[in-house]
Each structure stands twice: as structure tokens, then as C-alpha cells.
């Protein structure tokens, strides 16, 4: 299985992430693209700031992809690119792309990776509103 795991402060090239997982052994490429939404909890969002503990984020991302490979041994290739820094509305925040021989496993593996990433990867999001900012999920 090939893995391409990246955290970048540059705009994400979705086509490049898709190309990175393409292989003749795979008949299915599945991708999740997360973008910056204009509202959160009923408040208008102006922009986002992502902060990352890069080395740990990549370590944990490696664990997530290894777990996915254990669950779906037919996984051929995975690319995960996460943006950090300041993002505008509509910007791509994250791309997960996977390649498998058949489509069912590609949906499942892609969802597993993005769902688990959100739980364990050390990236924090600060939303900026008209009247202030807030670290997302910080408080109960």
C-alpha cells in the first residue's frame, strides 16, 4: 500500500491527491473533500485558522491509515492532505483519497479515515466570527 500524508500551509490540489492514489490495481478511487463552511452553530463564520502539532499529527495519521489497512487489506493507496493556517470560506481544508479494487471498500475506508482523523489527529480549528473567535469543540 502506498501512503501520501501531508500537512501544508499551501492551498490543497485535489486533483494531485486523486492522481497520487491512482494505480492499475485499483478500479475504485474514493475521495472526501472538506471545505470551509460559512456558518457554525448558527453563527456566521468569516474565516478559519487551523493550528497543527505537525509531527504528532503525522504520527497519528499514520496509525489511522495503518488501522484502515488492517480493516481493508485490499487498500492499494491512501492520500491525506490537511491544510493549516488561515483559510477563507470555500477553501479546501482536507482531502482523503483512497484506492481499492472495488467500490464498496473504497467508500468504507475513506469514511473510516476521515472520521477517525477528526478524533485523534492533533489539529485545532479556531473559527472567526463577526464578533470574536472561538476554538472549536474546546468547551462542553
Amino acid at each position: 500500500m502506498t501512503r501520501h500524508l501531508t500537512i501544508t500551509d499551501q492551498p490543497i490540489d485535489v486533483a494531485a491527491a486523486l492522481a497520487a492514489v491512482q494505480t492499475e490495481a485499483a478500479g475504485a478511487v474514493n475521495a472526501f473533500v472538506g471545505t470551509v463552511r460559512n456558518q457554525s452553530g448558527g453563527r456566521a463564520v468569516r474565516r478559519l485558522h487551523y493550528e497543527s502539532y505537525d509531527s504528532m499529527a503525522l504520527t497519528q495519521l499514520g496509525h489511522v491509515v495503518a488501522q484502515a489497512h488492517e480493516k481493508w487489506p485490499m487498500l492499494q493507496a491512501v492520500a491525506v492532505v490537511h491544510r493549516k493556517g488561515t483559510l477563507a470560506l470555500g477553501d479546501v481544508a482536507v482531502v482523503v483519497a483512497v484506492a481499492t479494487p472495488h467500490r464498496a471498500e473504497s467508500f468504507a475506508a475513506c469514511q473510516y479515515i476521515i472520521d477517525t482523523l477528526k478524533q485523534v489527529v492533533t489539529i485545532w480549528k479556531r473559527e472567526e466570527y463577526e464578533d470574536g473567535t472561538e476554538w472549536v469543540a474546546a468547551h462542553p
Binding site: 472538506g34 487551523y50 497543527s52 502539532y53 504528532m56 499529527a57 490537511h82 481544508a93 482536507v94 476521515i114 482523523l117 477528526k118 478524533q119 485523534v120 489527529v121 492533533t122 489539529i123 485545532w124 480549528k125 476554538w135 472549536v136 469543540a137 474546546a138
Partner: peptide
């Protein structure tokens, strides 16, 4: 060593 507050990637 690092403190890890609730993460919010993705």
C-alpha cells in the same frame, strides 16, 4: 511532552 486540548481537524 504536550498538552492536547480537544482536536478539531477535518
Amino acid at each position: 511532552i504536550a498538552l492536547i486540548p480537544p482536536v478539531a481537524g477535518g
